[in-house]
Design a protein around this nucleic acid. Structure first.
Ligand SMILES: [Mn+2]
Ligand SMILES: [Mn+2]
Ligand SMILES: [Zn+2]
Ligand SMILES: [Zn+2]
Lengths: 121, 121
DNA sequence: TGACAGTTGCAACTCGTTCGCATTAGCCTT
DNA sequence: AAGGCTAATGCGAACGAGTTGCAACTGTCA
């Protein structure tokens, strides 16, 4: 457990949004100037592989991350402001499972993203 | 309407899978050696902007494309074989719309991908 | 037939992410 | 406390999908 890793973990634990690697780098660097972007990427990959954090794609180039210690939820993305809103629908989750089961499959993971705009804008 | 564009359009029209840009380039090049990868990318962007084709992300690096003249559907991706299966659930579509509406939004587009494996494998 | 806008191929570029490598830090064992 | 071994680091170079600048070319329409 190196100094850099500790700082990155602290930043991740304290994040309640969906920051990308560069944003996390800047937050970590502000706490400890010995953190490099490479190490941020390496740590993110490590944690994602272990399932400790989640990586999202959100149709822009970069990946965004969030802590995985929370309950499952999906995302609604305002395409005008970029704001990310979380939601959960047990009904949708069940329908998804049924659709997969009807075809002889089981769901390993899924991605549900609603790209939205304010009503009447 | 140049020769290259015609060939790329023909290839797209004849594709019943979800090919990426490189695959489309190879299919087009086989029909007409004067097609370049740049032009494939340019044509894909043009068509996607016009809504004539759809671009999917499917968590691997490259984008995959499909003709947009068909009805809306979502995808189930076998993570063991890579096979892409299409499905449509009006119930899920309605639940999505309701979730957005409850929060004051309307859906512009959405992404629903089920990453699955054969039951008991 | 000529002219001009739009399109092309190519190579060079971008941008997020990964990698190679020499150096350093963490941590065991004496 | 000192040494030693491994794993982790920073840096810069490399990666891969996609884009772009530019000079040459094509399609179209007068
Ligand atoms: Mn979230
Ligand atoms: Mn499809
Ligand atoms: Zn879900
Ligand atoms: Zn759908």
């Amino acid at each position: 457990m190196t100094q850099q890793r500790k700082v990155i973990l602290r930043v991740l634990a304290g994040a309640d949004d969906h920051p990308d690697a560069n944003e996390l780098y800047h937050r970590a660097y502000a706490l400890d100037g010995s953190v490099s972007l490479s190490t941020v990427y390496r740590t993110l990959r490590l944690l994602a592989d272990r399932g400790a954090i989640q990586r999202h794609a959100f149709e822009e180039g970069r990946a965004r991350f969030e802590n995985a210690d929370r309950e499952h939820h999906d995302h609604l993305i305002d395409i005008e402001t970029g704001q990310v809103i979380e939601f959960h629908s047990e009904e949708i989750e069940e329908l998804q499972a049924r659709i997969a089961a009807e075809r002889g499959y089981e769901i390993v993971r899924h991605k549900l993203e609603l790209y939205v705009k304010k009503r009447g804008s």
